[in-house]
């Protein structure tokens, strides 16, 4: 290929990627750079900003007991939510990928996606009514005689957050798991069986290790949004206060934008580190190679 052809190819590629570049610049890079700049300025409540370089917002975020506790709690809830979703999604994905013939599994996944068409806030509000003291869940448990008094654990609590996120995020875990389990060659199962493995050891020695990229992607799809989630904790979490709530409150109510920006950047850095680890050690790259 001569130089002229290479140049033409580059210019055509550049032209094709121009819409994406423009979109990302306006809606992602410029806002992100603005947040980064703000995070290094001095801020005080009620939108008082002094444009002098300082690291105090980051120092405050990483050293103050309040933000440390919120950061740890947010991580714990995000991981707990992921584990609950994984425990629910994996059997469904396994069943659809391995037990269901043809493309029926894909059709069932499309059905699972339908509730997501409903407005996010309406879904959360619906759960408030289902999980409340006189909600459907408690009424059912009392009707079945399983409990005498309504259970308070389900409303305005951390379990309520996990239940609502489970409903919202389940398809995002099922899809990558379904794809990875489905892509495992049938010959590997046959070889394992021929070599004397039973179904359980085939699962633990073939299916599970080879589906880890799907698990990693599911983790990213759940962990990253959960780290910044603020609406669900605010609506069904009672007095639970997570990192997303801290950031929203600092931006909108207290008005300390530099501290809110430093918290946001710290959140982004955390998720980037987690992503790096997953891509490096769990073979996520295999999914798109």
């Amino acid at each position: 290929m001569n130089l002229e052809k290479i140049r033409r190819k580059i210019s055509i590629n550049l032209l094709y990627s121009l819409p994406a570049i423009i979109y990302l610049t306006i809606f992602f890079y410029i806002p992100l750079i603005t947040i980064i700049v703000y995070s290094f300025w001095h801020g005080e409540p009620l939108y008082r900003v002094v444009r002098t370089f300082t690291l105090e917002n980051y120092v405050k975020f990483y050293t103050e007991e309040l933000s440390q506790n919120i950061f740890i709690l947010t991580n714990l809830i995000s991981i707990a939510t992921f584990l609950v979703i994984l425990a629910t999604a994996y059997p469904i994905a396994y069943f659809l990928a391995r037990m269901v013939k043809g493309d029926t599994g894909l059709k069932i996944i499309l059905l699972i996606l339908i509730p997501l068409e409903m407005n996010y806030l309406i879904r959360v509000f619906a759960w408030r009514n289902l999980l409340g003291e006189n909600g459907l869940l408690n009424s059912l448990l009392m009707f079945l005689g399983l409990v005498e008094q309504p259970l308070t654990i389900f409303f305005h609590s951390i379990p309520a957050i996990i239940i609502v996120v489970l409903h919202n995020a389940l398809p995002y875990a099922i899809i990558p798991l379904y794809i990875t389990i489905r892509s495992i060659p049938e010959s590997l199962y046959q070889a394992a069986m021929d070599l004397g493995s039973n179904r359980i050891s085939v699962f633990f020695r073939v299916t599970l290790p080879l589906s880890m990229p799907g698990v990693a992607i599911a983790f990213l799809f759940i962990y990253i949004p959960m780290m910044g989630e603020f609406a669900i904790p605010a609506l069904v979490g009672g007095k639970t206060y997570l990192l997303g709530n801290l950031i929203v409150r600092q931006y909108l109510t207290i008005g300390n934008w530099p501290y809110a920006s430093a918290s946001t950047i710290s959140l982004i850095l955390t998720t980037l580190i987690v992503m790096f680890i997953l891509f490096k050690f769990l073979g996520v790259r295999r999914l798109y190679e």
């Binding site: 305005h156 605010a234 009672g238 007095k239």
Partner: peptide, 23 residues
């Protein structure tokens, strides 16, 4: 006294709805 608090509410409508539901 944190145990007595159900939540720190933001909007009157939300508070009214929580009182009406009995939560």
């Amino acid at each position: 006294h944190r145990d007595v608090i159900l939540k720190f509410y933001e909007s009157d409508i939300e508070a009214r709805e929580l009182l009406a539901s009995g939560d």
